[in-house]
Design a protein around this nucleic acid. Structure first.
Lengths: 267, 267
DNA sequence: AAACCTTGTCTCATTATTTGAAACTTGGTT
DNA sequence: AACCAAGTTTCAAATAATGAGACAAGGTTT
């Protein structure tokens, strides 16, 4: 009878959590039930349990559920321990200052691009909204670059999961076009986003590769067609490559600092 | 044999997740086992399940577990839907620009202060590391202000959980001193951090209260004793009060925007 | 090399928990 | 007063979690 979710009760509960998060807005129990595979009392108990555990938050006034505050706490630990962000931080600070454009750091999470960090060179506002945000792999600079240097089997798996929604006139809309693009990127060593996701937005992206050639993540410098063009972005290749190599080297040597005191640093 | 955790298998698994996060660094199975209440195979299976589910990440080289990347994705949804951050964003942007100092937005999470957002007026770097960070309630400006306007029973519960660790010479080190301070704050309408958490760091904090007087969160402006003093910070009271009121008002009227398309905005 | 740890993984009968059809409650609507 | 939708509870059957103990894989000492 095993459902697709697997991993017993815990897996099922987390699947419910994902469903709530996927709504992108606070959701009523009945809405959740309508699109759930579980019978009413089962779903009900999961939602209750998750709410008790503060993994979901219940708004009694509107009778809605949303992902809970406990996740924010846990994610902070994840971000600092399981992503490239703490290692890359000084390097992308420097990169952003040098190029004066927006810089992104991303990793691959299943078949999606997960944005891990961002520097907004000019305007320091509106940043948090991006860490944790996901984007499509087939039409972003960082996504294509990470795919280009992944194992063939991983590429197959990821491509199979892409929707190939046509965001702009430049979006690649099928697997073959994407595979050609990946071959190009592999021979160049870097890739572009040619207004494939948003009109007027272009970027150049560089993979972060371990010594063994494994994909750790990717960096990108984003700009607009008003300010520059692809040839202009190409001028950033040396500093991007340099930054990516530094991050990869630091990741190699990284061993977690031993903490004795927990509350040592202030806010 | 009901443990303190409650909520069946799911609760237990999440408790394990908390334990891993609490280490603050990647942790080996044996370390986890040493401080766990569960027998070896039980803990083992939980860790396996959580790793399968990407709630934990396993580093095969070092044989360690850390909170996983899936949490970062989930937390983004939580941050946007279950915190004041999206509502407060434009207001704290404006506040930060006006005062030229660091601004924090916090909420109460159990007995701790959870930092939700931050603006670093001068230097736009190193920001993400703060969202999701937790701090003590009894010796931070935002913590004391939120407590001061909470229900008596909540205050009792929170105070009972404080450690009253003496961070500096100014830290309040017992419940009575804290209760006096809370009474002061209540009559003033705002509070200070008088180098109670870190030497040289001072702040002024303002509660964000709903129409009914319920605590929604708190704002603070932080500075150093080199740059200013408490009297100087007190000059920010009008703009702080104004900002807090605007956030509270927006929170009242907030109904989640209906999304039809998910991928409408670019990165 | 052999004996001996330490750390991590697997087995399986027992036990406790999850499961979901159906019944019930609550609040709003015709 | 009858009706309907959304949410909550019950309880026997089905299933999954549990953990003592055995086993495997490295490493270290004698």
């Amino acid at each position: 009878m095993g459902h697709v979710t697997g991993d017993g009760t815990v897996g099922k509960a987390l699947h419910v959590l994902d469903q709530v998060a996927a709504f992108g807005r606070p959701v009523r129990f009945s809405e959740l039930l309508a699109q759930s595979d579980y019978p009413k009392p089962t779903l009900y108990r999961f939602v209750q349990t998750l709410t008790n555990q503060q993994m979901l938050a219940y708004d009694p006034e509107r009778q809605t559920y949303a992902p809970g505050i406990r996740l924010v706490r846990l994610a902070h630990a994840a971000w600092e321990q399981s992503t490239l962000a703490p290692i890359a931080r000084p390097h992308i600070d420097a990169l952003s200052a040098a190029v004066g454009e927006t810089v992104h750091l991303a990793q691959l999470d299943n078949a999606q691009v997960l944005y891990i960090d961002k520097r907004n060179a000019g305007k320091p506002v509106q940043m948090y909204s991006q860490a944790g945000k996901v984007g499509p792999a087939y039409c972003t600079g960082v996504g294509k670059v990470m795919l280009a240097f992944s194992d063939a089997e991983d590429v197959d798996r990821v491509i199979a999961q892409q929707s190939f929604h046509k965001f702009t006139g430049h979006t690649l809309t099928d697997a073959d076009a994407l595979r050609e693009e990946l071959a190009d990127i592999r021979s160049n060593g870097y890739g572009f986003d040619r207004e494939e996701h948003e009109p007027g937005i272009i970027c150049i992206a560089m993979p972060i590769l371990s010594e063994g050639g494994r994909v750790l993540g990717a960096l990108s410098v984003t700009s607009t067609t008003n300010r520059t063009n692809l040839a202009g972005l190409e001028g950033y290749v040396p500093i991007l490559r340099d930054t990516a190599e530094k991050i990869a080297r630091d990741a190699q040597n990284w061993s977690f600092p031993d903490y004795e005191t927990k509350e040592a640093t202030g806010i």
